[in-house]
Simulated assay, not measured.
Amino acid sequence: MKSNTTYIKSNPQVSLESILHVIKSKGLNISQVKENPLYSDLFDEFKNSLSELIDIICHERSIHELINSIAKSYNSTFYSDMKEYDTYFEAVSETYLRLFSVIKKSSGDVNNIGRVRVDTFLDKDPEVFTYTLRSYIRNNILLDLSRKLGAENTRTESDTVFFEGDESIYKVDSVKFNRSQIENSVDIADQIADSITFKDDMQALVDAVIARFTSRKPVAAYIFLCTLNETYDPRKIVTNLKSKNFNDLFHGVLKDLSFTYNLDISCYNTMVYDATKYLSSFRSISDESARARIDRLASQTRKDVQRLPIANVIRSHM
């Protein structure tokens, strides 16, 4: 029986294909558009359409069922809280980041070593881009995600790990796109920040975070305090950490918190917060990798805070 089913392109796909035609007509590839300030508006349009398209593909039934099956396959202690949406966001994040990575290994008959992956998608017509992307997510991203979880599902992170020189460390709780939708539903940072009536709890929480993290993970403490202050923005944080004095940044967020919640931070006025160990490697990587690293650290820190004694006190007040 003849099917009357008609495939309807999504708006992001239509927009993306139109942008790709413009890029090809200029004789450019996508990475060139990204690097040239003259085409910043064009690249922003491409980036937004691409992100929306990846989101749509990962919600398609066949792809999403694979994501769900991966999420349910590993039940180790470290991943005991892994949810379907955690894995979904990880797949989205890995797809976007790896599209802009340089290919280091040959695959098949065509040698693309040295090229940015997303540029190879333009070797074909723009109308084939979505099909190629869908196949890439299914055959590469999800397969690698499954393999990595299987290989590292028992790994735990000590307080002294800073992801220095070890980008292979993989955390399924890495969050790069939408923190508010995937964090723990009983999240102290959000619960406290939503209500200034918890002044005593806020003071105790800030004190506990500083005492717990600043000597070994000062950047983690800074990120969590930004979350409490409702100013957590990975893009802005990366820019600040790469270009500004960390001690000034730390005292700045403390000052903002003191004004917002009427906290006493006088005992910290003379303290010097040094993150040289973390930032020495952090400043040498791309902004995309830096944002991914910040989100990994932020997500892990939020979970670490949940285990602090003050967390139980705060929960009792909610």
Rank of each mutant, 00 (worst) to 15 (best):
P218D: 06
R235L: 08
I223K: 05
H251T: 09
P218S: 10
V253Y: 06
F259S: 14
D287W: 07
R216S: 13
D256I: 03
H251Q: 14
D295N: 15
L241Q: 00
V219M: 04
D248F: 14
R212N: 14
L249E: 04
R235C: 00
T227M: 11
R283W: 04
S286R: 04
R291W: 07
T231S: 14
P218K: 11
L254H: 06
N269R: 15
D295M: 11
M271P: 00
T270M: 13
L249P: 02
L241T: 01
K255E: 15
R293Y: 07
S280A: 08
C267W: 04
D295S: 15
C226T: 02
P218E: 06
V253D: 05
D248W: 13
N269C: 09
I294R: 03
I265Y: 01
R235S: 11
F282N: 00
N262C: 09
M271G: 01
T260Y: 01
Y278Q: 08
N245W: 07
D264L: 09
T276F: 07
S281M: 05
S280K: 14
S258I: 05
R291P: 04
Y268K: 07
R283S: 10
L279V: 02
T276I: 06
R293H: 05
C226W: 01
Y261R: 05
S289D: 12
F259Y: 13
R212W: 04
N245S: 14
S243Q: 13
N247K: 03
F250K: 04
G252H: 08
F250A: 06
A275R: 08
K242H: 07
S284W: 07
S280L: 01
A220P: 01
I265Q: 01
C267T: 11
A220S: 12
A292Q: 08
A292S: 12
Y222W: 11
V219N: 03
D264T: 09
N262D: 15
L225T: 01
D287Q: 11
L254T: 08
F282G: 00
Y278E: 13
L228V: 05
D274K: 11
S289I: 13
Y261N: 03
V272R: 13
D233G: 05
K255V: 09
R216Q: 12
D233H: 09
P234V: 08
L225G: 01
T214F: 08
Y268S: 10
D233N: 13
D295F: 07
T260V: 02
V272L: 11
K277V: 12
I285Q: 05
K242G: 12
N240G: 03
R291A: 11
F246Y: 11
V238R: 11
K217A: 05
D248I: 11
D295P: 00
D256N: 11
V272E: 13
H251M: 10
V238C: 05
T227H: 10
T270L: 14
G252P: 04
I223V: 12
F246M: 09
L228A: 06
D287V: 10
S286W: 08
R283V: 14
A292N: 10
T260Q: 10
I265C: 05
S284E: 12
D256S: 15
A221K: 00
F213S: 01
N247M: 14
K217E: 15
C267F: 07
S243K: 12
R291E: 14
L249Q: 05
E230W: 02
